[in-house]
Structure formats: C-alpha cells, structure tokens
C-alpha cells in the first residue's frame, strides 16, 4: 500500500474513534495554504495577514478584554432576541396553525412582512429608536420571529388528524391536546424554524452592529475596517464561524437528537 493511502486509512480510523477530529482536521490544509500564500508575499501583508498575525491579535484583544466583552454583548443580544422571538412566535404560530380564521387574517400579512427583510427596517428604526439597543433588539426579534411562526404553522398542520382523534377518544380536552399532541408534534418544525431564525438573526445582528453598533463582534469588524486592520476583520470572521458552530453543536443538535430524531419524526 502506498503511504498516501495508508495515511488516509489511518485518518478514517481515527475519525471513527474521535468524531471531533473529522470537524477539525479538514481545516489544517486550509490554514497551511493560507499561511503559505501569506508568507510568499503574494498580497501585501496589510491586506492579507498570516495565521500567526491573527493569533497574536486574538491574544491581544483577549488580554485587553475587548473580545470577551464584545462577544458577550453579541451573544446576549442574540439570546434575548431568540427568546423574545420564540415567546411571540410559537403562540402566534399555534394560533395561525389551529384556527382557520386566524390563518385567513394573518397568513398573508405574515408572508408580506417576512419579505421585507430585517435589515431594510434599519433606517426607519434608527429614526424611531436612535442608535442603540432598542433598534438592534427589534431587528433580531423581527428576524427570528418569522421563521419560527411560519415553521410552527407548518408543524401544527403536519400533525396527523389520527393523533387528534386518538387523543379525543381517550378523553383529552382541547387545552390538553394542545399541550400533549400539537406542541410536541410541531416541535421538530419549531426547532427548524429556530435554526433558520437564528441563522438569519445572527447575520442581521452583525449587520446591525456594523451600521448602528457601539460594541459587539460586528462592530469590532467594522471598526477594524475603518482602521484598515485586516487582521482583526479576519479574526472577527473566525470568531463568528466558531460561535455558530458552538450554538449548532452544543444547543441545537442535542435538542434535535433528543426530540424529533428520537421519536422517528425526522431522519438524520
């Protein structure tokens, strides 16, 4: 067997034992290539920093406390937005999904306001609330809300009519059916909605922080742009990617595994 194949089979066996490796190792050649291109000086260093530059700037910003503080701001904004988006979105979705009248009255406006993307609201929000937290919170809640509502409606309507009937003939009342049948039946869709909503909401947050922010990862990146510091921009992008990876791997995926996948409602 040639060495390349041997290395590959070793890698295959290692990733089977430690699945985390499969998520990390592919980045090694990318970073190496990046390093080589930077070191070769194809682009000016100010435009195209090398990996050590980024690590140094990371250490520097952590030491000064700027990065932890900005990261905390961004995550807190996202968490508040997600919580508020769900608190409004899930009940609204249940209402629109269960009641014909509510569906007829609310579905068209929901589709219409969803189409006016979050960021297009920024100018008028700035007039209403000024540069600050209220504007950013509105944008995130708005962004998270629609995917949650629309997917909750889908989820409610995907619950088979037999399950409603089974619950009724076992003596369940309407409120109990809501809690025991409709909500768990819609849960996989609700989580999909939350996933989409967070995906959009998080981008909206970055944009809002760039445009109106005084702190946060988006502000860090845009501030770095003003100062012409490509290193910090790249650092910001990496932090954003990692942050999403953590939210996905540590929050969303475990919920999905414990609910829809366990119940056989979603296939992986």
């Amino acid at each position: 067997m040639n060495p390349a194949l041997q290395a590959w089979s070793l890698y295959a066996r290692a990733t089977k034992r430690w699945p985390a490796l499969a998520a990390l190792v592919p980045f090694i050649p990318v970073v190496a290539l990046w390093w080589i291109v930077a070191a070769a000086g194809v682009f000016p260093r100010a435009f195209f920093p090398s990996p050590p530059d980024v690590v140094r700037s990371f250490a520097d910003l952590v030491y000064k406390g700027i990065l932890p503080e900005y990261l905390e701001d961004s995550v807190a904004r996202l968490a508040v937005g997600a919580a508020a988006g769900m608190a409004i979105g899930i009940p609204l979705g249940l209402l629109v999904g269960l009641s014909r009248k509510a569906h007829a009255a609310l579905w068209p406006p929901l589709l219409f306001f969803q189409a006016i993307g979050d960021i297009a609201w920024l100018p008028i929000l700035l007039i209403w609330f000024g540069f600050g937290l209220a504007t950013m919170t509105f944008v995130i809640v708005y962004t998270v809300l629609f995917p949650v509502v629309l997917n909750t409606v889908l989820g409610v309507r995907s619950v088979p009519v037999e399950l409603h009937r089974a619950a009724l003939s076992l003596g369940a009342s309407k409120p109990r059916i809501l809690w025991e049948v409709v909500l768990p039946g819609a849960l996989p869709n609700i989580i999909t909605g939350l996933r989409n909503g967070l995906g959009y909401g998080w981008r909206a947050l970055i944009a809002a922080e760039m445009i109106v922010g005084t702190s946060g990862v988006g502000f860090l990146m845009f501030d770095a742009r003003r100062a012409g510091s490509v290193v910090e921009i790249v650092l910001g992008m990496i932090v954003l990617g990692l942050l999403w990876y953590i939210v996905d791997a540590w929050v969303l995926a475990p919920i999905e595994r414990a609910t829809g996948q366990r119940w056989g409602l979603v296939t992986r």
């Binding site: 088979p160 037999e162 009937r165 089974a166 003939s169 025991e180 849960l187 609910t259 119940w263």
Partner: peptide
C-alpha cells in the same frame, strides 16, 4: 376506545 389502522401512537 378506538384502535386505528395507522396505529396513531404518540411518537413523543
């Protein structure tokens, strides 16, 4: 009490 062709068990 009803027994359904599709079983209609609560998956969750």
């Amino acid at each position: 009490g009803v027994v359904f062709q599709s079983f209609a068990l609560f998956p969750w």
